[in-house]
Nucleic acid binder design. Structure first.
Lengths: 195, 195
DNA sequence: ACATTACTGAACAAATTGTTCGATTACTAC
DNA sequence: GTAGTAATCGAACAATTTGTTCAGTAATGT
C-alpha cells in the first residue's frame, strides 16, 4: 500500500485544492464557483491547477475518489464490529461516517449543482444495499417486488433521510436516526398508523 | 382564469425556448448547454432570449412553474377518482403523470446538473406526503419516528423508485409500480425476508 | 550539492455571457 | 383594412471565464 506520490509538493497542492473546493461548495453553489475562486482560495498558481486536473469537475471527482477509498476502509474496519445479522443494510456505518465528516457530506449532498457527487454517493449506497439484500433474499425466493425496485427504494430513502438529518443539524445521534431508518425500512409505515 | 399574455409572439417565443431546453437536456448535461445552443435550437434571436429571461436558469425555473401548475391541476382532477383511503400517499398520481410525460420527467430527474428541478420535484412530493401523513396520523398519536423523518423517508424512496422506473424504460404500468411502492412503504422489507 | 521535478505568473486565444440599439416584422384593436 | 403598438432581429460590444504555453524560480529526493 505504498503511495506513488513521493513529492510533498504535489500532495500539498492537491490537498489545498481539494480543501478549497469543499470550503467553497459550503459557501456557494458549485456551478457558480470558478477555477479562479479555487486557486485564489488555495493560493495556487493557475498553471499548477491545470497541471493536476483537467478542469473543475475533474478536481471534484478526484476528490470523491479519495473519499470513496476512505469510506471503504472505514466499512472494512467497522463491518464486523456491528451486528450485521440484525440489520438489513449497513446504514449505521453511513450515519456514523457522515456524523464524523459532516462538512464533507453536506458539501456532497447539498452542494447545489454538484450532482456528480450525489450520483456517485447514490451508486455507492445502492451497490452496498444490493449486495446486502442479495444474500438476505437467498437464491430463488421469488418476491412480488423485484430486487432492483427494493434496492432503489431503500437507497433513495436512505439518502433522503441522511440528507434531512444533516440539514436539520444532526438532531439525533447516529445510532438513533439509524434505528428510525431501520424501523421504517423493515416494518414500513403501517405500524405507525395502527394505533 | 384568463391569460394575461395576449400577444401570440411572446407565447410562441417562450414555448419555443422551453421546448428547446427540454430537448437539449435530454441530449446533454444541463451545465454544458449554452444560451447559444438554446436560441439556435429554438431559432430565436439572442436579444429576445434576454428580453424574456434573466439567464439559462431563469428559463429552467420558469419552465418548471408551468409544469407545477399542470400537475396541480392534474391532481385536483384525479384525486377523487382514486380511492385515497387505501393509500398512504397519492403516489399513483405521480406515476401516472410521469407515464404521460416521460420526456419531461426524464429531463427533470436525470438531466445532469439540473438539480434545481430535482429539488423542486422533491419539495413538491415532500409537501404532498407531509399533508397526507399529517391527517393520517391523527393529532396526538406520538410515534417513535418524527413526522419529518417519515416524510423524508417516503419522499426519497418515491423519487428514487420513480427515477429507476423511468431509467428502466417503464417496464411496468403505473398501477403495478405503484403497488410495489405502496407495499414497500406500508409493510416494509420485512415481509419479503420472512419466507 | 546536484539533478530533477514542481510551481509561478504573465500573456494569450477562444468561448461565453449579458447588454445595447436601430431596423424590421407581427400583432391587436379599431 | 389600416394604424399604432409591441416584439423580434442581428450585429456589435465589453467583461468573464477557460484552458494553454513558456521561461524563470523554487523545492524536493537521493
Amino acid at each position: 500500500m505504498s503511495e506513488e506520490k513521493s513529492d510533498r509538493r504535489v500532495q500539498r497542492t492537491r490537498q489545498l485544492l481539494h480543501d478549497a473546493l469543499i470550503a467553497l461548495i459550503l459557501e456557494k453553489r458549485y456551478d457558480k464557483i470558478t477555477v479562479q475562486d479555487i486557486i485564489d482560495r488555495a493560493n495556487i498558481g493557475r498553471s499548477t491547477f491545470y497541471a493536476h486536473f483537467l478542469d473543475k469537475e475533474d478536481l471534484l471527482i478526484s476528490g470523491f475518489h479519495a473519499f470513496d477509498d476512505e469510506i471503504n476502509e472505514y466499512m472494512k474496519n467497522e463491518a464486523h464490529a456491528s451486528e450485521s445479522e440484525e440489520h438489513l443494510l449497513h446504514s449505521l456505518i453511513f450515519f456514523r461516517h457522515a456524523y464524523a465528516n459532516r462538512d464533507l457530506y453536506r458539501a456532497m449532498l447539498e452542494g447545489g449543482g454538484a450532482d456528480t457527487l450525489m450520483d456517485t454517493a447514490r451508486r455507492h449506497i445502492t451497490e452496498n444495499i444490493r449486495s446486502h439484500l442479495a444474500e438476505a433474499l437467498s437464491e430463488e425466493s421469488e418476491t412480488a417486488v423485484p430486487l432492483s425496485v427494493v434496492t432503489s427504494f431503500l437507497a433513495g430513502a436512505m439518502l433522503s433521510v441522511l440528507t434531512w438529518w444533516l440539514d436539520a443539524d444532526l438532531p439525533y445521534p447516529p445510532e438513533q436516526i439509524n434505528r428510525m431508518f431501520q424501523e421504517l425500512a423493515r416494518t414500513g409505515v403501517q405500524s405507525m398508523l395502527a394505533n
